[in-house]
């Protein structure tokens, strides 16, 4: 997400490559994977952490103070860190000789726009929702979270097909590996600290 990795001076479109990838993932990834990687290394992960900082500061406090945004960005930086770990894992497993790791990370982060957009919308709605009505906000979140999840999975599928050059079976395996690397450590943390097992056992 977040950054334009290729600079195309002939293209009049004002939209970022993240928008192109989100709207036409197959074509955009085919096009973008041909050229050299642009943009600063780790710019996208850092901007991801900043986005999370802004979103939680606005949703929880209604004011994005520098202190709160920085605190939230640091706290939630495990999310882009896990995304990088997933790219490293899938790159090592499937695309080591095909492209540079830096390029894989940058192209992968372009596919985060659906979640970023959803988070911004949730923060905007939350900031306009009074605390007694937050139950409605929860319902809205649960109902709409399927959209960025499925959308980003579709983008991820095309990332593995077009950027890594994998067939359908390889793309499926890469998707599963990605999910394990992203979700696994979170599940392990909550299991190890006793926060998950009672809920799994009790169903509440």
């Amino acid at each position: 997400m977040l950054l334009q990795t290729r600079r195309d001076t002939t293209r009049p479109m004002p939209w970022s490559d993240a928008v192109r990838v989100s709207s036409h993932p197959a074509g955009a990834y085919t096009d973008l994977s041909r050229g050299p990687a642009g943009g600063r290394f780790l710019e996208s992960p850092v901007l991801s952490a900043l986005l999370l900082g802004v979103v939680f500061a606005v949703a929880d406090s209604n004011r994005p103070s520098a202190w709160l945004v920085a605190g939230c960005a640091v706290a939630w930086s495990f999310v882009p860190a896990l995304q990088i770990a997933s790219v490293v894992a899938t790159w090592l497993a499937f695309a080591r000789g095909r492209l540079a790791l830096r390029g894989a990370i940058q192209l992968h982060f372009l596919g985060h726009l659906p979640w970023s957009l959803w988070l911004l919308l949730v923060a905007a709605v939350a900031s306009a929702t009074s605390p007694p009505n937050e139950a409605r906000l929860w319902k809205l979140m649960f109902v709409t979270a399927a959209i960025p999840f499925l959308w980003s999975r579709a983008i991820g599928w095309h990332f593995f097909r077009r950027v890594y050059g994998l067939g359908p079976r390889g793309a499926l395996l890469a998707t599963l590996l990605h999910l394990v690397v992203v979700l696994g450590p979170v599940a392990v943390f909550f299991l190890a600290t006793g926060q998950l097992a009672p809920r799994l056992l009790g169903g509440r």
Binding site: Q4, R7, S16, V55, L120
Partner: peptide
């Protein structure tokens, strides 16, 4: 902050 973040996400930088 929210509009700015959306702009950073959606818009291209200078050619």
């Amino acid at each position: 902050a929210l509009v700015g973040m959306a702009g950073v996400l959606f818009l291209r930088g200078r050619a």
